[in-house]
Design a protein around this nucleic acid. Structure first.
Length: 828
RNA sequence: GCCGGGUUGGCGGAACGGCAGACGCGAUGGUCUCAAACACCAUUGUCCGAAAGGGCGUGUGGGUUCGAAUCCCACACCCGGCACCA
């Protein structure tokens, strides 16, 4: 860059500077986290975590943004005296490597570890403050050894189990998926294919065992996690309060339903069972059996699009049996319909058509009775066709008649049900157990052996890890069952219990299992004897700040929370939540759209780094917007960032005072700007407003430039103080430029090891402030006054000001509000 | 439909209930140059005005307050989550 610029301006070459400092930083190894000082409690700890990448190709813009943002905070915490743990690794199991291996007839590890080395080199060049001594890869046997160990621990607790159930199946990836991996439109989160259902025996983690706690402790995260993620988790877990009510059925065992409105039980005029639930087949009468089967054929034919439509007319079939309403003894018919879901609640509902729109729609189609039991003052639903669900007075509801409050009605109804044994108050969750087995190769094998005599047998701990057999190329072709099944010498083993012939489980674990505990492994990544050192977990945990993508709002974050709680209950750790604070960064887009090959609007990180240098790209990403907002690359200016960095750097060259010069006698005006900037920057950094920190640093650069050119001059000690402050603030975002400045200012590297500037409170006090004089709340004058002016003095000065007198224009002053020293408001 | 977040110049965005638009991008004018690029300087919410100065301005409509981008109520629109979840 610089050699092509014919200019009198002095500038530095961004690329030469990158080459220069990388080996120096390597030698200094300044970001290695010291366990001892944290275990001993000598220093406060800061565990900063940012989501580790999947090794597909090189790093891209998205990585650049999240890493740049995270680095700002970690470097700042180090300046503030924290012992910082900022590790990085790779989430290196997963399908892209497997698909590449099939295509190129090679082993997934080839693709995986080649990409890891590429990304590692890019990370280094990007100048991040990672402690690389803790680097890990989830696909290493040394890592998945402990993934398997944790699986077995969870299984011992009954938190990992196998069951046969209808599951989500991705026809493209040829594997099952967890609910969390199916998007709202019924497509695969990974590849976008339309997900279908299959009935299969699969492994599950019992996330539902922690549904209540996962939901409740969101309250504790409310203030430190970004709201949309807390909200997404609440919605996903889907807690709803209500009651189970038991209905006697003629000729069958009683059936329980879940309802959130037990107070409307007197208006239940029929019952509906999910058509595809076992219950429907059990209840149906012989005469109606054929009708139910015909209906089921129709239901299964309906496409997902139809199923997802809420406008679809209700359908169903009478099951030929009747139930008894427990509160009024009424005999009500039992129907089957697909508008009731088999896997939510009990798969059966009591229908209260007057107060539930879905039930009303169904009642109208099937000509079933509608009875209003809450009079809300609106038109009777029986006539209007619009169900009411607000507060109103209860009618036709026996003991509830006369009540007018819904909450009270629900409370009383539950009391009555519990008193005579017809039901109980209960809480229902939408969350399901996590389906964790996958029919693919490149993942951690499930460490279980199936024996015809002993059934499921855990692989003994001393035989872990169960390493993947060597398979490559065509052997990995998806065929609906796990490729591991083809490795017969691997599959066929003797039973650990009886020694007889047995077979290994051939499924591998969802890669989200690997990432559910990686933040523990960073604590002691090379420990061959345990998953992590409990003493280090106690010292470093939990993670103080976690930055990552919002696509993991439910997926990874929910799974990691589940793991943490389960591990706590196993006595492995003593904290409840893995991530004390969570922020998700926005996406880097281009021209209003997500970058994509099909749109041709991709911006290659490498090309940007080559053109503008690492620091300019990092600065651009941090300055563009608040961290959680999207950045449109078309709206930002890396060239402008590079220009600013040159301007900042030039300050260091202009300083003529010697290193170590006491700033005390320096220009007070500039010193005030410097100290105020440091003071505000600290507050802004503590609240993650990194873009504003950059703006404040720019202001300090501008003020320093002005002081050098047309103020106190380059030899003033205040100029040195300001330039050194700029270097320190800039080192959070632009480490190369900052290091250059630091060196030019006569200091030893590294600026990252410099002391955070001490703010002198005396310099935060202004000696003159601008007081605003308002008349009727509109600004009509400005006064330069002392910051400690009295209210009375300020009022009299304001009222005497000629501009104010003119604006008052002789009108009588009715009231004067004085907020010394900043404001006077005159009401006339 | 329910839940969460948002709406500020041409653009990205700043603003403890007290000077709206910091900082930057872009644009315009200028300096340098044979010229351009780079760099540097100046101007830049909008309307009226030659200027001084003034009117209007933070999605819309109300409210609280001496004073509202900021607090309250209602509405519109945008983004995200959930959704025939009983």
């Amino acid at each position: 860059m610089s050699e092509t610029v014919a200019s009198s301006e002095v500038r530095y070459d961004a690329h030469a500077v990158e080459e220069k400092w990388l080996p120096v930083w390597e030698r200094l190894d300044a970001f290695r986290a010291d366990d001892a000082s944290v275990v001993a409690g000598e220093k406060p700890k800061f565990y900063g975590l940012t989501m580790f990448p999947y090794p597909s190709g090189d790093l891209h813009m998205g990585h650049a943004e999240v890493m740049a943002l995270h680095d700002v905070l970690c470097r700042y915490k180090k300046f503030r005296g924290f012992e910082v743990l900022n590790p990085m690794g790779w989430d290196s199991f997963g399908l892209p490597a497997e698909n590449a291996a099939i295509k190129n007839d090679e082993h997934p590890a080839t693709y995986t570890y080649a990409n890891i080395e590429t990304q590692f080199a890019s990370f280094k060049k990007y100048g991040l403050s990672f402690d690389w001594s803790r680097r890990l890869h989830t696909s290493d046997p040394e890592y998945y050894h402990w993934t398997q160990w944790l699986f077995l621990k969870l299984r011992e607790q009954g938190l990992a189990y196998r069951k046969n159930s209808p599951v989500n199946w991705c026809p493209n990836d040829q594997t099952v998926l967890a609910n969390e991996q199916v998007l709202a439109d019924g497509t695969c989160e990974r590849c976008g294919a339309e997900v279908t259902k299959k009935e299969l025996t699969q492994w599950y983690f019992k996330t539902t065992a922690y549904a209540q706690e996962l939901y409740d402790s969101l309250d504790d995260l409310q203030d430190t996690w970004i709201p949309k993620v807390v909200n997404a988790q609440r919605n996903w877990i889907g807690r709803s309060e209500g009651a189970h009510v038991t209905f006697d059925i003629e000729g069958h065992d009683p059936v329980a339903v879940f309802t959130t409105r037990p107070d409307t039980l007197w208006g239940a005029t029929f019952m509906v069972v999910a058509a595809d639930a076992k219950l429907a087949a059990e209840l149906v009468s012989d005469e109606q059996r054929q009708a139910l089967e015909d209906y089921l054929v129709d239901v299964r034919k309906a496409s997902d699009i139809d199923r997802l439509s809420t406008e679809r007319p209700k359908t169903g079939v009478f099951l030929g049996v009747h139930a008894t309403n427990p509160v009024n003894g009424e005999r009500i018919p039992v129907w089957a319909s697909d508008y009731v879901l088999a896997d939510y609640g009990t798969g059966a509902i009591m229908a209260v058509p007057a107060h539930d729109q879905r039930d009303l729609d169904f009642a109208r189609v099937m000509d079933l009775p509608v009875r209003r039991v809450v009079d809300t003052g609106e038109e009777n639903p029986e006539e209007s066709g619009v169900a009411t669900n607000g507060n109103g007075s209860y009618v036709n509801s026996g003991p509830l008649d006369g009540l007018t409050d819904k909450t009270e009605g629900i409370r009383r109804a539950i009391e009555l049900l519990e008193a005579d044994g017809h039901g109980t108050g209960t809480v229902n969750f939408r969350l399901r157990d996590w389906l964790l087995s996958r029919q693919r190769y490149w993942g951690a094998p499930i460490p279980v052996i199936h024996c015809p005599v002993d059934g499921e047998v855990a692989v003994p701990e001393d035989q872990l890890p169960v390493e993947l057999p060597e398979l490559r190329g065509a052997d990995l072709k998806p065929k609906g069952t796990s490729p591991l099944g083809a490795a017969s010498e691997w599959v066929n083993v003797s039973c650990p219990t009886c020694g007889g012939p047995a077979t290994r489980d051939t499924d591998t674990m969802d890669t989200f299992v690997d990432s559910s505990w990686y933040f523990f492994r960073y604590l002691s990544p090379h420990d061959g004897t345990q998953a992590f050192d409990p003493a280090l977990a106690k010292a470093w945990g939990p993670v103080d700040f976690y930055l990552g993508g919002s696509e993991h709002a439910v997926l990874h974050l929910l799974y990691a929370r589940f793991f943490t709680k389960a591990m706590r209950d196993m006595g492995l750790i003593d904290w409840d939540e893995p991530f004390s604070a969570y922020l998700s960064q926005g996406t880097v887009i281009n021209n209003g759209h997500k970058m994509s090959k099909s749109l041709g609007n991709g911006v290659a990180l490498g090309a940007q780094l080559d053109e503008y240098g690492v620091d300019a790209v990092r600065l651009t990403l941090v300055f563009a917007s608040p961290p959680e907002d999207n950045i449109d690359w078309a709206d930002v200016s890396p060239a402008g960032s590079a220009k600013f960095l040159q301007r900042a750097w030039r300050l260091a060259g202009d300083v003529t005072s010697a290193p170590g010069t006491d700033a005390a006698g320096g220009d007070v005006a500039l010193r005030k700007v410097t100290h105020k900037t440091v003071h505000e920057a600290a507050q802004l950094l503590d609240t993650y407003r990194f873009n504003v920190v950059v703006a404040r640093t720019m202001e300090l650069v501008n003020a320093t430039r002005k002081a050098i050119d047309s103020g106190c001059g380059p030899e003033d000690p205040a100029v040195r103080e300001a330039a050194e402050t700029v270097a320190i603030l800039l080192s959070l975002v632009a480490p190369y430029t900052a290091e250059e400045m630091w060196e030019r200012l006569g200091h030893q590297p590294s600026v990252a090891q410099a002391a955070w500037p001490t703010v002198d409170p005396a310099l935060l006090v202004e000696d003159a402030v601008t007081a605003v004089v308002q008349i009727q709340g509109k600004v009509r004058g400005r006064l330069e006054v002392s910051p400690d002016i009295s209210e009375a003095d300020l009022e009299s000065v304001a009222l005497a000001d000629p501009a104010v007198v003119k604006a008052i224009d002789g009108r009588p002053v009715r009231k004067v509000i004085v907020r010394a020293p900043k404001l006077v408001n005159i009401v006339v």
